[in-house]
């Protein structure tokens, strides 16, 4: 199954930074016959989640397999996932999304939700997420804590919204989640999209450590000096990378401030 996953991505991996060799990356990326399109293996362990429309997120109602150690945010003992997480798991067949009244929703429904753009996730945004996830990176929306202990819940609520009760009722959970979404709004035309952690089989949401970089989704034009500086101020010392998604092809760039040494 892992091999399959690699195969389906090999088309995008070929742009080596190395010099000298120049792999002809575009020759093998298109299927001629429809049978050439790789398919992922069918899974036995299928988790289930229920869509919560006002949040634009889903609550996991049945967890199966180990994938939940690195997917979804934990609030009051429950796991919620964002649309990109739902779509990723739905595409690989590890998650079934249910509507409010527990009818299963098709992949088409999930694509539509991404298309609506109401859940803070565009297709480009999803492409970046999927690419890194497929390679084993641990990815979460920028600035949203993996887990919040019950006693700390209040800290994450926007100052302007009324304080939720400690009881953890539906209402308060919703306001917590919604205020987190607001914190994740974009800066200028650009947006700090994801916190990315290196592949780590011992990853724990309760002690995630610092991400290795914050991924910013590039816009139509390369970022200006001012935009880069602005984003750097908001990433709290974590290195930034930009992801450019063009025609389903991903490119990652670093713009690192350096200081050339004074030579002897």
């Amino acid at each position: 199954m892992e091999a399959d996953k690699w195969a389906s991505f090999s088309e995008e991996t070929s742009d080596s930074e190395g010099y000298g060799e120049d792999p002809d990356d575009d020759d093998h990326c298109c299927a001629y016959a429809s049978t050439d399109i790789p398919k992922l293996q069918f899974r036995k362990d299928i988790s289930r989640s229920r869509w919560l429309d006002p949040l634009g997120m889903a609550e996991v109602v049945e967890r199966k397999g180990g994938l939940w150690t690195t997917t979804g945010i934990v609030r009051n003992g429950k796991i919620y996932c964002f649309i990109e997480e739902i779509l990723y798991l739905a595409e690989i067949g590890a998650l079934r999304l249910l509507s409010k009244d527990d009818t299963p929703l098709s992949l088409e429904h999930v694509y539509n939700k991404v298309g609506e753009g109401k859940s803070g996730c565009s297709l480009e945004y999803y492409e970046a997420y999927k690419h890194l996830k497929s390679l084993g990176y641990i990815v979460r929306r920028h600035g949203i804590p993996w887990s919040v202990r019950r006693s700390k819940v209040n800290c994450f609520v926007n100052q302007d919204t009324p304080e939720p009760a400690q009881s953890g009722d539906e209402e308060s959970r919703n306001s917590v989640l919604i205020s987190e979404m607001i914190n994740n709004m974009q800066i200028g035309g650009l947006r700090l999209a994801f916190d990315v952690y290196p592949p780590n089989s011992r990853f724990r949401k309760s002690a995630p450590g610092d991400p290795c970089f914050v991924l910013c989704l590039a816009s139509e034009y390369p970022p200006s000096k001012e935009e880069i500086e602005d984003l750097e101020r908001h990433s709290h010392g974590i290195p930034l990378k930009f992801c450019l998604v063009e025609h389903g092809r991903l490119n990652f760039f670093s713009f690192n401030k350096v200081e050339l040494p004074i030579l002897p």
Partner: peptide
């Protein structure tokens, strides 16, 4: 004068101690 390098990063090239996709 501000100095900045621009580099491409390849997520495939990271050295993964235990390459493992958990699911």
């Amino acid at each position: 004068v501000e100095e900045r390098t621009i580099t491409r990063w390849s997520p495939e090239q990271v050295k993964i101690n235990s390459y493992l996709i958990l699911y």
